[in-house]
Design a binder for these strands. Structure first.
Lengths: 131, 131
DNA sequence: ATATATACCTACTATGTCAATAGGTATTTA
DNA sequence: TAAATACCTATTGACATAGTAGGTATATAT
């Protein structure tokens, strides 16, 4: 349900938060510390930089930094950006075609409720809770 | 996250609960009413009959019946039997190998908490809530 | 008895996702 | 100028999903 993309993204965020003092944290170091593939992490980060959660500086001495205080990163945001979709069922995914059985459907409220408890939980956690 | 197996299983249970008066409900009729493939449904039902949630009678005039009152079917049970695994991350799945990073891991409590809110939600719903 | 309707069983398949691996380019600093 | 970094795109093997397909076993209705 939550793939390595989202899980690794969280570990990367924690690692950066922990290791950025004044400078930038190279992803090579993160990969080493976390025991993860650098090349794979490089594929996971773009949504986080493009949406302003991280800033990446190229070149020697470069790396990544947070752009906010850890308490201002909610897990809902991090996982929404890195996971394909968090909705428990297909018909609740963003951009999903309208269900033909809508109106008849006796289960939609149940799935929507499940969606909500998950989203609420993810909203309740911030990066600061991991430090 | 929740596949068609679990979703269809729920729709089948609702359909049987609605349509069993005194007799047995043929899956062919369920498939027709629900607009689902009979052959596919036949693959989804075995865990429910083998674990005593439904009873199936072969032969002409046969079909399926519930074995309990609707209020005594919790969604946690139905989905656990029909879905491969409901855990949000691999390391919490049943029978998963112990994580090497256990002890170091700063995220496990978060994932366990997510697992719990989902399981609690599924426990809180019964088949009776859909009728 | 026989035909019919049902559950039950097993194999196969097309498609897509996951989790990387791989090889490169652009950019900045030491 | 060399080195280190972010950034980009293609490819791949393994696996899960959502069925399709064809059959067997069993009980009932006629």
């Amino acid at each position: 349900m939550i793939s390595t993309r989202g899980r690794y993204a969280l570990r990367v965020m924690i690692d950066i938060a922990t290791n950025q003092k004044d400078g930038y944290v190279p992803m090579k170091d993160v990969a080493l510390r976390q025991g993860l593939s650098l090349k794979y992490l490089e594929q996971i980060l773009p949504p986080l930089t493009k949406n302003g959660l991280l800033v990446g500086i190229q070149g020697k001495g470069g790396g990544y930094r947070l752009t906010r205080e850890p308490k201002d990163y909610h897990m809902s945001e991090v996982l929404n950006l890195t996971e394909k979709d968090l909705a428990p069922v297909g018909c609740l995914k963003e951009g999903a075609p309208a269900c033909e059985r809508k109106g008849l459907c006796k289960t939609i409220a149940f799935w929507e409720g499940m969606d909500k408890v998950i989203k609420d939980y993810l909203e309740s956690y911030t990066l600061a809770d991991f430090l």
